[in-house]
Design a protein around this nucleic acid. Structure first.
Lengths: 241, 241
DNA sequence: CATCAGACTTGTATTATAGTTGTCTACATG
DNA sequence: CATGTAGACAACTATAATACAAGTCTGATG
């Protein structure tokens, strides 16, 4: 069986990088070149492969270093909306509208499996203008630890820091009804993006359910598809029953 | 019973390939030639037989290698909508509505940078019911290779097989206007999911732009977020200007 | 302290070579 | 006529060797 040299080198480098501290420098390309008895071009191709994995990065005149963020964010190049607002210098606020312990609606109960839940409804503002209405449900025994001011001051993921592990997110569309139209300052019947998310804890059990409504004229989802595209049809779409 | 040499060789190769790692390289044709004491042409015919099984593939100047899985679909656990329909036993059809070479609208021209484009508009049916209206733009010099029946019979990604590399997909919402409402068999003002996609070629240049409209009551996007969730806010959302 | 030269780094070419597949022609054999 | 052998050539790939541009750091110099 033949083998490609730069792939061998890339594998070796991946191994080393995984056991190295983030931010630490790799040997220079010419050093690696002599060490592997390969030309600089070959070493470079290997390095570029590892970079494509998100494990390392390079700066001209400086060198190759282990990437600080070992978990590459393949899914989307954009961060959270809050971080976006912050970097663009806009002011982000949230206003809690409702905060109640109650019996969950059927579709929430089916997912969370709790007889009593905390429901928090709030509106998110960017520069004073509303851009999202968010409803979050979580089991009552978890929600009892939070006060209204906790929820008002901190995002939910901070309060549950470290407990959240993965999520499934479905994106749909709806039109604004009277209640939502009022909150989002759009006319009744305006198109909305509706996002339902089920967030799991470290053990994979769902512990958080949330519904987000965005006015379509101000928001859109962006998904980067770095690899081969299997179809012109949007990936991730499914027909609902 | 005389056995045909290149079929014997093909059988032997099939055996080896099944026990080899995907992506690994086979010996070169001339090596196999000496190993099997057969001419290179004969070995080649055997290799081509195995390739027709989909087990291996070749690249000129590189070699023969064990075929990898069709597509490493990391992004979402769901496949394309066509594959979904197929596995669920539903009937998928498409009907081409418009097929024209013309000057592109501004937002298409800005992305593709072409003075003339091919625009194809079609409606997708599942079990006879419409579930998507799709418009695809591509530069005229690329589109000239395709006929109307090409587009009607094959998905676009098949016609451009191997050329497509990555894409950026934005998901938004809109309401159905008269034209779309008619095509999708929904009332005017019904919520629609609107997906715009820019697909790039191997060099990262955009070569395809498409717009997809789905009736919201029948469709939704599903995005799996396997890693840490940074926020309760949906990932990938951004504010538009 | 500010500045500048020099050593070292990555980024990006070009050229060369050996090895590979893709394709063709010519010929032999049953 | 299908099957197999032998050979030649084009096109492509991986790799090496080299050169130069451009960015980063360090330390000497004034």
């Amino acid at each position: 069986m033949r083998s490609i040299r730069y792939q061998e080198i890339a594998d070796e480098l991946r191994d080393r990088v995984r056991n190295a501290a983030p931010g630490s420098l790799l040997p220079s390309e010419s050093e690696l070149s002599t060490e592997f008895s390969a030309s600089r071009v070959t070493v470079r191709r290997a390095l570029e492969l590892v970079r494509d994995d998100g494990l390392i990065d390079a700066r001209q005149g400086f060198g190759w270093f282990v990437a600080t963020e070992p978990v590459p964010q393949r899914l989307e190049s954009l961060g959270t909306i809050e971080a976006q607002l912050e970097t663009s210098g806009r002011d982000a606020q949230r206003r809690v509208l409702e905060f109640a312990f109650e019996k969950p609606p059927a579709h929430v109960r089916r997912v969370l499996g709790a007889a009593k839940v905390l429901r928090v409804k709030r509106v998110n503002l960017a520069d004073g203008e509303p851009f999202a209405v968010v409803t979050v449900w979580c089991p009552a025994e978890l929600g009892e630890r939070f006060s209204l001011s906790d929820v008002e001051r901190h995002p939910f993921y901070e309060l549950l820091d470290g407990k959240l592990r993965g999520a499934t997110q479905t994106i749909g569309a709806d039109i604004a009804h009277a209640d939502e139209a009022d909150l989002l300052a759009v006319p009744i019947g305006a198109p909305l993006l509706k996002c339902r998310r089920v967030t799991n804890d470290a053990d994979g059990r769902p512990i958080l359910m949330s519904e987000h409504l965005f006015p379509a004229h101000r928001t859109e989802f962006v998904v980067e598809l770095p690899n081969d595209v299997p179809s012109v049809t949007p990936a991730g779409l499914r027909l609902v029953e």
